[in-house]
């Protein structure tokens, strides 16, 4: 039996569709560049502007998640896959990493001591 069915799923498109796709690719590039520029500028000026560090920190994390979304959804094409495939990839990751983060946040207070430096 022939198990290599790759050719059936291989994607092809014409010139017309390719033009539209290249446009999307470059739009996403400008989005990523703009977000990175905002991040770097914020990192350079937040002290002079007297901004609250907690606010700056969460802005950085939020912008990072925005970038991650655009890379995974568009460049890695996940947004256009079947829904059940998106769930199969994203859910295990999200659930386990949230669990890890919750553990680190709730348990980190116990190790905050003065006993050891190295």
């Amino acid at each position: 039996m022939d198990f290599d069915r790759t050719a059936e799923y291989a994607q092809h498109h014409g010139e017309e569709e390719g033009k539209k796709m290249r446009k999307t690719i470059w739009i996403i590039f400008w989005v990523l560049l703009a977000v990175t520029t905002v991040e770097v500028s914020l990192g350079l000026v937040w002290k002079q502007w007297g901004l609250n560090w907690q606010f700056v920190k969460w802005t950085f994390i939020l912008l990072t998640l925005v970038k991650a979304y655009y890379i995974v959804a568009y460049y890695m094409h996940l947004k256009h896959e079947f829904k059940n495939f998106i769930y199969a990839v994203a859910l295990p990751y999200i659930v386990l990493v949230l669990y890890l983060i919750v553990m680190a946040l709730t348990e980190a207070i116990y190790v905050h001591g003065e006993d050891m430096i190295m």
């Binding site: 799923y9 896959e81 079947f82 199969a88 990751y93 386990l96």
Partner: peptide, 21 residues
């Protein structure tokens, strides 16, 4: 494929998930 994705691509995705961990 119920995912309409080839075997090789599915495996690449699953590898990336484990690497992401």
């Amino acid at each position: 494929s119920p995912f309409n994705v080839s075997y090789g691509k599915i495996m690449m995705w699953f590898f990336l998930v484990s690497d992401a961990f």
